[in-house]
Amino acid sequence: MQKKFWIKTLINSAMIAGIISCSQSQDKTMLSVAFENNKTYEKPVLDSVKTHNKASEALDFCKKNKFNTDFAILIDMSLHSGLKRFFVYDFKTKKITQQHLVGLGCGNNSWSSDDSKDSPEFSNIDGSYLSSLGKYKIGARGVSEWGVKTKYLMHGLENTNSNALKRVIVFHSWERMSDDEIFPKGSPEGWGCPTLSNNAFLQVDPILKS
């Protein structure tokens, strides 16, 4: 049974840490949708119970490690990349306040394709062009070559993502990313960075700056 992968990003002032865990359950509600060529696809729906459980784990991590306990960023990498799987979760209200598409690494597939939209691979190896699972601390805000020209450095805190900084895995926007869900198509894949649309990044950036 295919594993489900989660990324959780936890805010500490200008710093962020993230958690990734795996679950064997496949309890997502399914919804039928039609595509242009009259083919019917099963559209996964976010498991809200699992999301709240992951947020609770994130809050425990924040408290234990003296991180800010206002909100977390959660990324559910088990969801199809054409669905909104990047969540800003408010610890105080216990609600998702923002929800966006997020891209991942292309690996051996063509750059900017969506070949791994529903079956991604992950790696910590430099040159793999894949995203890495694990806890992260995100630090310096700087200038990017992509999107709105802003990025945040990502420091991997586990063996599964320890090369993130060396690999220049950063959080940034990308003009190829959509504002809206595009399922059954997938989001364009880059070189391993978590990427949002320009508009989505401009919504998240003020929270990180504060």
Score class of each variant (00 low, 15 high):
1 M>L: 10
1 M>A: 14
1 M>D: 11
4 K>R: 15
5 F>R: 09
9 T>Y: 08
10 L>Y: 05
11 I>G: 04
13 S>W: 01
16 I>G: 07
17 A>M: 08
18 G>M: 10
19 I>D: 04
21 S>D: 12
21 S>Q: 09
22 C>I: 12
23 S>M: 11
25 S>V: 12
26 Q>P: 00
28 K>Y: 08
28 K>E: 15
29 T>C: 05
30 M>C: 02
32 S>Y: 05
33 V>H: 07
33 V>F: 04
35 F>K: 12
35 F>S: 15
36 E>D: 14
36 E>L: 12
38 N>W: 05
39 K>G: 03
40 T>K: 12
42 E>K: 15
42 E>L: 15
42 E>P: 02
44 P>I: 10
47 D>S: 14
60 D>I: 11
61 F>N: 09
61 F>W: 14
63 K>M: 08
64 K>Y: 05
64 K>G: 00
71 F>R: 13
73 I>F: 05
74 L>Y: 07
75 I>M: 10
77 M>L: 15
78 S>H: 07
78 S>W: 00
79 L>P: 04
80 H>Y: 13
82 G>P: 12
84 K>H: 00
84 K>P: 00
85 R>A: 01
87 F>P: 01
87 F>M: 06
91 F>V: 01
92 K>D: 05
95 K>N: 06
98 Q>I: 02
101 L>R: 02
105 G>W: 05
108 N>S: 14
109 N>R: 10
109 N>H: 15
110 S>Y: 04
115 D>I: 04
120 P>C: 03
122 F>C: 05
123 S>Y: 08
123 S>I: 11
123 S>T: 13
126 D>C: 05
129 Y>F: 14
129 Y>A: 12
130 L>K: 13
134 G>C: 08
136 Y>Q: 05
137 K>A: 13
141 R>S: 09
141 R>T: 12
142 G>A: 14
144 S>W: 05
144 S>K: 06
145 E>C: 03
146 W>K: 10
147 G>W: 06
148 V>R: 04
152 Y>W: 11
152 Y>T: 02
154 M>C: 00
155 H>S: 02
164 A>V: 10
165 L>G: 01
167 R>P: 02
168 V>W: 11
170 V>E: 05
174 W>K: 07
175 E>P: 01
176 R>I: 12
178 S>G: 04
182 I>L: 08
184 P>V: 12
187 S>R: 08
187 S>M: 08
189 E>V: 01
190 G>V: 04
190 G>E: 05
191 W>A: 10
194 P>Y: 01
194 P>K: 00
195 T>H: 01
196 L>N: 06
198 N>L: 03
201 F>D: 00
207 I>G: 00
208 L>G: 06
209 K>T: 13
